[in-house]
Simulated scan of single mutants.
Amino acid sequence: MHMEFLSQLTLLQWLGTIFGVLQVLLARQNNIHNYLFGMVAILISIWVLYQSQLYADIVLNLYYLAMSIYGWFYWKSGKQKKEAPISYSSQKEHKIAVGIVLGCFVLMAYWLGQHTDSDVPYWDAVVCAFAWAGMWLMAKRKIENWIYLNISNLISVPLLIYKELYIYAGLTAFLFAVAVSGYIKWKKIIAQKRDKTYAGA
């Protein structure tokens, strides 16, 4: 029975991984449909993470789901009722992102340490905190999202290996590489737009 349960978790990890890979590749291409694949991956991940007692990651995935819905609409219309462009974060947005990291870490660490049976409360909390800020920046279409998400990825890989979620650990390592590539690609898109603006001036 235990082996059958583990095989089901492994199958779900593979399925979630496929949707997760498609999501991040579409995000790298600046394609709005990344959110549809992301939502499916998130729902699968929530079930797998629940079985592995990674509760902060479940809360993080629920947040991902909400931010994916928000991001879908923001990418489509933005504040000006037209497609929001890729851009660098303002000083205010940088401060908000750092605030999200600190606030999320404190809340998650307290909740996990005091109110759950998690054996990795601080480790899980810091992964959650950086990803939380990164997803907010992604929804706002800010290039710095890749930096915050990659800090989370870097810390998450050994945590997933510790929890024996090897497929998700491999996915996260892959996401780290894609995020580096995504940052470079988004930077080129911003530069190309700037060049066109100067040329048209």
Rank of each mutant, 00 (worst) to 15 (best):
S152G: 14
M108F: 15
L15F: 14
K92H: 00
L102M: 09
V178E: 14
L62T: 05
A133R: 05
L9M: 01
G103M: 15
Q53C: 03
A66P: 00
I151Q: 00
E164M: 13
S7E: 15
I86C: 00
S87L: 06
I69V: 15
F5D: 01
P85L: 11
G99A: 06
Y70R: 02
Y122C: 04
A139P: 05
K163N: 04
K188L: 06
I46K: 01
Q53W: 05
A41F: 07
Y64V: 12
L159R: 11
L43Y: 07
L62V: 08
I189W: 01
A84E: 15
I18L: 15
L137T: 05
Y122A: 02
L165D: 04
K196P: 02
E83D: 11
D119F: 04
Y168I: 00
P158E: 11
L26G: 03
C104D: 02
V106A: 15
G113V: 11
Y55T: 02
F19I: 11
T116A: 14
S152H: 10
S181F: 08
L149Y: 06
V180P: 02
H115I: 07
C104V: 14
L154W: 08
N34G: 06
F174T: 07
A133K: 02
L36W: 02
A177E: 06
M67E: 13
S181T: 15
V157Q: 04
A131K: 04
F5N: 01
A191Y: 09
G170R: 13
A177Q: 05
V40M: 05
W186H: 07
G78F: 03
W75H: 12
W136R: 01
A191E: 12
K193T: 12
F130R: 05
E164L: 13
Y183Q: 05
V106N: 14
V98R: 07
I42F: 01
T10R: 03
E93N: 07
Q51W: 05
L165W: 08
A139V: 13
N150R: 04
V48Q: 14
I18V: 14
S45K: 07
Q91A: 15
Q91D: 08
Y168G: 09
G134R: 03
K185W: 05
P121Y: 11
A84F: 04
N31P: 02
M138P: 06
L107I: 13
G134L: 07
